[in-house]
């Protein structure tokens, strides 16, 4: 089971804030599943700041980062202000 949480602007476009998926082999594959479940186009999800178990994918293997089940994926929009 892979848990996906949406944050920021992605949360506004989705039907739910959290999703659970099985069988995604990597981040790219997972995003296609998120697209189907949430209604957010894949090309938009691809521009998110994505974390696998709290680590940013740009410090892993980007969209080819392998998933094995049990991961927590966080999909976040960039932000500023304060």
């Amino acid at each position: 089971m892979i848990t996906v949480s949406l944050y920021g602007l992605y949360r506004l476009k989705a039907t739910d804030a959290k999703y659970e998926f099985e069988g995604a082999k990597d981040v790219k594959h997972l995003l296609t599943m998120v697209e189907q479940a949430s209604g957010i186009p894949y090309k938009e999800l691809k521009q998110a700041v994505i974390f696998v178990n709290g680590s940013p994918i740009d410090q892993l293997d980007m969209f080819s980062t392998k998933l094995h089940g049990g991961e927590v994926i966080s999909i976040v929009s960039p932000a500023s202000g304060g």
Binding site: Y7, G8, L9, L12, V76, A79, G81, G82
Partner: peptide
């Protein structure tokens, strides 16, 4: 949409 508190998550 989120105000500056939208920063907490990132």
């Amino acid at each position: 949409n989120y105000g500056t508190a939208g920063l907490i998550t990132p």
